[in-house]
Write a protein that binds this DNA or RNA. Structure first.
Lengths: 114, 114
DNA sequence: GGCGATCGTTACGCAAGCGTTTCTTTTGTG
DNA sequence: CACAAAAGAAACGCTTGCGTAACGATCGCC
């Protein structure tokens, strides 16, 4: 079920959502952090640092740092993989799910207003 | 003409666009910068530092800095207002318009894929 | 003409992100 | 058992953004 948008709608939607998010949330996640967060919550686990780095086309420290920041904010959690203790498995949190749920509502509402 | 999205479509669209943008563009504008850029290009001029600050709910130095950065990238331009020389009028550029046009295409294409 | 208000910028100290490189732990394999 | 490979984190120097506070230029108005 594709979503058909005109150029004006596409940018207008992004505009309205960005604007509202800036006004509402002082956290101001970077685009990279947002991409990581959405990847974790929308794609079936497990997620690893290495996997995310490959998926986004960035280096591993970028992922580590983003997880540090978002972990401190309670949006994600890290657990050592007991089957291969070199790996770290990234876990979702209730707070993170809530955050994205509200963000999704924001998108939906701004979309309706177009 | 509203855009009706399911929660899954809303977050899925944001996910796909963020991901692609991260992979394609090393510039990595912050959400604030993106909101400012879209405001300048989608809302009829004139735009001033003060006006943008009020619209986004941020302080003036935030706007000044964003304009510094995006100006250096050629995405916007600044011109002194000759009618009231205290004001600075923010101008669009060809490069900025092109940048947003490509970004809009990205949104449209990712929307179709949902 | 003086003077308070307004506009945008700059300065300051600080926090956070970056890329590269190095380190630590753990694995698998000869 | 030794040792190279792999995963993630930490260290390093640097750049960029932040909020607050101060600043210079310009205006409106009496």
């Amino acid at each position: 079920m594709p979503v058909e948008l005109t150029p004006s709608q596409a940018l207008g939607l992004w505009h309205a959502v960005s604007l509202e998010q800036v006004r509402v949330d002082s956290r101001d996640l970077t685009l990279r952090q947002m991409a990581i967060l959405l990847e974790i919550y929308l794609v079936p686990p497990p997620h690893t640092v290495r996997g995310l780095a490959a998926k986004l086309g960035v280096t591993k420290p970028v992922i580590t740092r983003a997880l540090d920041t978002m972990g401190a904010a309670g949006l994600v959690d890290r657990v050592r993989d007991e089957r291969d203790r070199r790996n770290v498995v990234i876990k979702r949190t209730v707070e993170g799910a809530l955050y994205l749920e509200k963000f999704g509502d924001l998108i939906i509402n701004q979309g309706r207003k177009l």
